[in-house]
């Protein structure tokens, strides 16, 4: 059975890029448009990894990470942040909130899969 990865980003093109790379590598992908949407979709679904943007409407990435970590069954689920080079402080904040790692945009599919496969296979 394939592993399921959730991509949370308010940018449709980013959701598409990440989804393309992950599906091509054999993962099942669930897409959410922001943190609130992601929290809703996590209910009743088994997700093996979450990849989230930081700046999003409704519920941003940091708050999403905090909520996920408070959710039963997702305390130890790997969460990867999508950051830009100028978001060093956000990285630290994300790590403190419970993020497992990060990847800097723009990235290649190999870089993305390299990070993803560090946590799930």
């Amino acid at each position: 059975m394939g592993k399921t990865v959730m991509i949370v980003d308010d940018s449709a093109s980013m959701r598409q890029v990440v989804g393309f790379a992950l599906k091509d590598a054999g993962f099942d992908v669930i897409a959410a448009v922001d943190g609130k949407d992601a929290v809703g979709k996590l209910t009743g679904t088994k997700v093996d990894m979450i990849i989230t943007d930081l700046n999003m409407p409704n519920l941003n990435g940091i708050e999403l990470i905090k909520q996920v970590r408070r959710t039963d069954g997702y305390r130890f689920t790997p969460i990867i942040m999508l950051t830009t080079e100028s978001q060093e402080s956000s990285k630290a904040e994300g790590r403190q909130a419970g993020a497992s790692g990060w990847i800097v945009k723009p990235f290649t599919p190999d870089q993305l899969l390299g990070v993803v496969k560090k946590f799930i296979r």
Binding site: S11, S13, M14, Q16, V17, D24, T84, P106, T108, P109
Partner: peptide, 20 residues
């Protein structure tokens, strides 16, 4: 071809950067 298109898909991240 798949690899080339993967590279193009990477380039499509420009849209997100442009949006930001």
């Amino acid at each position: 071809l798949v690899n080339d298109i993967s590279g193009i898909m990477v380039s499509m991240q420009f849209q997100d950067i442009t949006r930001q």
